[in-house]
Simulated scan of single mutants.
Amino acid sequence: MKEVAKYLIKVEAEFKNGQIVPEIPYEEVMRLVNEPNIVIIKTGLPEATLRSVIDATHTWAESTPLAEGPDPFDNNQHKQRLHIAKIQQAPQLFHDHTFDALLDLDESMKQTLLGVFTPMRQFWNNLTGNNEEYGIRKGQPYFHPQVTHYPLGGSFFGRHWHPLNPQKVGTILALNQYGKDYSSGGTGYVINDHIVETEGFQDMGDLILFRYDLPHWVSPSSFADRFSWDDPAGRWVAILPFYDPWAKPADKDEPQGWKAQIQAPKNATPEVVV
């Protein structure tokens, strides 16, 4: 375990018997996340497994019509996200592949995706004390496996946030390599008014963990490159949200902001804001 920057900690792990096993107990990992810190787990997932997810997802999207209507949260679809979120006013430009009905995919595609999502699911269960499986359960939280592509040439995701529960800890797995497959763009966070940028710190196979109510964003890829929806070049990540899509959404105001909600010590002189 090593602190590589303020609020940014790397934890070694090994990929053993299909599971991500950290060098420190899961309870200690979760404690670090909740302090809060951004924790990067060096999972040891094989490069061939990670790249197969990119290749399979790109091939699947080429033969699957783009989704354009509201998300039903009960199918497998891909969408070119290019809008501003209504509640949080977060602009976004990226190619989203969502697999809510992961178990309904053809066997080859399903097994390829499960090569990363099963270790991620088991790791999240170990962190949070849950024992959740895949499957759509309306009226209850469930997993929403996603493979996200940030094309070269200006893709990004503006500053946004989520309710803490039931997810508790966010997971972002790097499917390809910074400095080789892409050279700009990474996930940033705010902790106690301090900006934490992970660009350049997350390698292929690294799993970023973060307290789920931290404000965060994805920095733009360089405009020096030409943008294309069809070109698979760029940053690819796998994420595994766990939530009820019909429940109350995130508040308009940042949930922990790490500013307005921080309580001043007793007997302290209040700060005057002008």
Rank of each mutant, 00 (worst) to 15 (best):
S63K: 08
T64K: 01
P65K: 00
L66D: 05
L66F: 02
E68V: 03
E68L: 02
G69Q: 05
G69W: 04
P70T: 11
P70W: 01
D71E: 00
P72D: 14
F73K: 12
D74K: 00
N75Y: 02
N76R: 11
Q77V: 13
Q77I: 13
H78G: 04
H78D: 02
Q80D: 09
R81H: 12
L82N: 14
L82I: 03
I84M: 05
A85C: 01
K86F: 15
K86N: 04
I87Q: 09
Q88H: 11
P91I: 12
Q92K: 14
Q92N: 10
Q92T: 08
L93C: 12
L93Y: 15
L93D: 03
F94H: 15
F94D: 05
F94P: 03
H95P: 00
H95C: 10
D96T: 13
D96R: 11
H97A: 10
T98C: 15
T98W: 07
A101C: 11
L102A: 05
L102W: 12
L102C: 04
L103K: 07
L103Q: 15
L103M: 11
L103T: 03
D106G: 11
E107P: 01
M109N: 01
M109C: 10
K110T: 05
K110Q: 12
Q111D: 14
T112Y: 04
L114P: 08
L114T: 00
V116E: 09
F117H: 13
T118S: 15
P119Q: 09
M120V: 09
R121M: 11
R121D: 05
R121E: 01
Q122T: 09
F123N: 08
G129R: 07
G129I: 08
N130C: 01
E132A: 09
E133Q: 13
Y134A: 01
G135M: 05
R137C: 02
R137N: 09
K138W: 15
K138E: 07
K138H: 13
G139T: 05
Q140H: 10
P141K: 08
Y142H: 06
P145W: 15
P145Q: 13
V147P: 07
V147R: 04
T148L: 11
H149D: 14
Y150S: 12
Y150R: 15
P151I: 04
G154S: 08
G154M: 07
S155F: 01
F156L: 04
F156C: 07
R159C: 15
R159F: 14
R159E: 13
H160A: 08
W161Y: 06
H162G: 12
P163E: 10
P163D: 08
L164W: 00
N165M: 13
P166V: 03
Q167V: 06
Q167I: 01
K168T: 09
K168H: 14
T171V: 00
I172C: 10
A174P: 07
A174M: 14
L175R: 06
L175I: 04
L175N: 08
N176H: 03
N176D: 11
Q177E: 14
Y178R: 10
G179D: 02
K180L: 02
K180F: 14
D181T: 01
S183H: 14
S183A: 15
S184L: 12
S184M: 02
S184Y: 02
